[in-house]
Design a protein around this nucleic acid. Structure first.
Lengths: 198, 198
DNA sequence: CTGTAATGTAAGCACATACTTACAATAATG
DNA sequence: CATTATTGTAAGTATGTGCTTACATTACAG
């Protein structure tokens, strides 16, 4: 019984790794099972088809709402620090889930029906959490009355695109120091804007 | 002679369409040639291998520096309008090249060596142009002394991520009206920031 | 009109891949 | 120990795919 889940887990991990590297079509069931240290037949006994295996991989992805967890701590901080903390947390979470996110971004154009749910779950969850924080700030009178959704889109857009270009595409990851520096600049622009007199 | 270039062009267009829909591996030479109204053999006579066909498609992508073209007009405008114009122009250009960009984003994780050049050419060109404009604004004393590269990353990050989520992933495109509205909000945040007292 | 370049028809090859079947070996459970 | 669930071995099938070969047809240039 413990064996069963272990095998399944190893297969899912091998699938994650190989599909993130070669795409759904490029990752063969032979190679997946070999990487999992298991016969190809075992793969099919567990998942039936390659498609089911892929779907179970997608469903196995639990997007921890880490943002939500740090919100209490965040409320105590001045908003500059709070936003930096939120941003760093967001980037770290994305980095941890790098392989899965690569799959989501790559395959969503090819298999939209399969991916869209888990993808939009991830996006909506992040957006909602950050949106709540912004609304709070606005109620406190700290934040201007820009539409919260727009602010969320702007803020997360900067961050996610940064993640895509710097962390996912470039092979050698960014150091945490450098990441913090970039985040500070983003937060600064987001808070103060860029122009002198208006 | 006119026939030759036409056939090649039709093959490249069919390749663009099918690879953007199904990915490099998912698009078969049979289907590509059928869509081009041509025999599979003709495809191989022109391009030799599927890989060469793909590479020629990538090289056929000339990224018009439309941003550069409108810079003169932009210099006459107040920066709010200038930034909105630049942003709209950027989004329109991306939308026109939607299929190719989809390919670049999808396949760059699978075939980085092939894609990286054309991809970074596109990114660098856009960044450089916008960076120059920002530097100009800073010399005029209009813009705060934020690092121009950071400002560029922030601004284009917002826009590109907007493009990715709203225009590329959602099947029904966004209306131009709505796009202009969103752009105005982004530009507003970029210029004035979000917080009241600092 | 004649020769040459471009395309078509048809058949097929070599290979990879998802998936199957029949049977044996092994490990966990009661 | 005996039963049962899980995995392995080995062979193979059906299908799709990139690519080739041999020959015929069409179009265009001189």
């Amino acid at each position: 019984m413990t064996r069963k889940t272990t095998t399944k887990q190893q297969l899912l991990e091998a699938t994650l790794k190989l599909i993130s590297e070669k795409g759904y079509l490029g990752a063969t069931t032979r190679e997946i099972s070999r990487l999992a240290g298991v016969t190809e037949l075992t793969l099919f006994r567990h998942f039936g088809t390659k498609e089911r295996l892929f779907e179970e991989l997608l469903n196995s992805y639990t997007f921890l709402p880490r943002l939500k967890e740090i919100l209490p701590a965040v409320d105590q901080l001045p908003y500059e620090d709070a936003l930096s903390l939120i941003a760093m947390n967001f980037l770290m979470t994305l980095t941890e889930r790098k392989l899965m996110i690569k799959i989501l971004l790559t395959e969503i154009h090819l298999y939209p029906e399969k991916i869209r749910n888990v993808y939009s779950a991830m996006v909506n969850e992040s957006r909602a959490t950050l949106g709540n924080y912004f609304t709070t700030l606005q109620k406190k009178g700290v934040m201007r009355s820009v539409p919260p959704e727009s602010a969320v889109r702007a803020f997360m857009g900067m961050l996610f695109n940064y993640f895509r270009t710097e962390i996912m595409i470039k092979e050698n990851g960014v150091s945490k120091k450098r990441m913090e520096q970039n985040v500070r600049e983003f937060v600064d622009i987001f808070i103060h804007g860029t122009m002198k007199h208006h």
